[in-house]
């Protein structure tokens, strides 16, 4: 039997490794990843492109099994997809034939939960992400930022305690992105979820996270976990503070000058 989760970590990753394929063509994507995430904590994962960040998402959400180590979510070992984790991908991944509201309710339908009971919650979440007026619109009628907000509402709808986001704002323009970072902070404060936020923007990581996991190039290893000293609540002006610049410099130094913005 696997040992119990350390304390009451929401997410516990233990010596996880991942090798794609076998033989000479095998790709080692992750190696010796160990990390404990406390309930309600906001973790950012930064690392160069191709270092296995998305792989980590696939492992934590049970879409793939690691080739080494184990992952515990809410104290239970992950050995398949789980409904206690919400996912936000890099692209919104909405279903264009469903209204925004029905997109948010999709997890409820797939999980065979009573749709009528979750309707009010879905509407509240759409209000929370600023899309209350667009519940009956279709995805093609929304801008990229609005679509990604709908995707966030969808990830929250089944009230999973853990939220995993894979470069969710990577495709947005800089201004929309800052706005989304502010909103995400607000949503996180309101919902008190455990968040694992994958990004390759150091500034975004420093703005949002309690702790920043810095990864090496492939095979991805954890170089360091930095505790963010920036006080909450953070405003966009805080990004101009010397302390902010110091944090960014620290992370960039660890990445060896890599991981420049976008």
């Amino acid at each position: 039997m696997p040992p119990e989760a350390i304390g009451d970590a929401a997410l516990s990753i233990r010596d996880v490794g991942m090798v794609y394929g076998a033989g000479p063509g095998a790709v080692e994507a992750l190696s010796g990843i160990t990390l404990d995430v406390a309930p309600g904590e906001f973790i950012a994962v930064v690392g160069p492109s191709g270092c296995g960040k998305s792989t980590l998402l696939r492992l934590v959400t049970g879409l793939r099994r690691p080739t080494g180590g184990e992952i515990l979510l809410q104290g239970r070992r992950v050995d398949g997809p789980r409904s206690d984790v919400g996912i936000v991908f890099q692209s919104p991944v909405l279903f264009p034939w469903r209204s925004v509201l029905d997109n948010v309710l999709l997890p409820i339908e797939v999980l065979k939960l009573p749709k009528a009971r979750y309707r009010d919650r879905a509407m509240e979440l759409l209000d929370l992400v600023g899309l209350g007026r667009f519940a009956m619109n279709y995805p093609a009628e929304l801008s990229g930022g609005m679509q990604q907000r709908a995707a966030i509402a969808r990830a929250l709808v089944q009230d999973a305690p853990v939220l995993i986001m894979d470069e969710p704002f990577g495709a947005l323009d800089a201004m929309t992105r800052e706005q989304m970072n502010l909103e995400l902070q607000r949503i996180w404060q309101a919902q008190r979820k455990t968040v694992v936020f994958i990004t390759h923007s150091i500034a975004e990581a420093v703005f949002l996270a309690d702790r920043i996991v810095v990864m090496s190039p492939r095979p991805g290893r954890i170089l360091d976990v930095i505790t963010n000293t920036m006080p909450r609540l953070r405003s966009l002006d805080d990004m101009l503070a010397p302390a902010f610049a110091e944090q960014v410099r620290h992370v960039r130094a660890l990445l060896g000058g890599r991981g420049a913005e976008l």
Binding site: R58, T61, G62, L63, G80, P81, S83, V85, I87, F89, S91, V93, F95, W97, L106, P107, E109, V110, L111
Partner: peptide, 28 residues
């Protein structure tokens, strides 16, 4: 779309649910 399949897989969707929620409307 692979991401849409992943999303449904992360919700443990059955083959029938994948047909109904994704493949049929996608084919229209």
């Amino acid at each position: 779309d692979q991401d849409r399949l992943d999303l449904l897989a992360s919700l443990s969707a059955s083959r029938w649910q994948i047909l109904r929620f994704l493949r049929f409307p996608n084919a229209l």
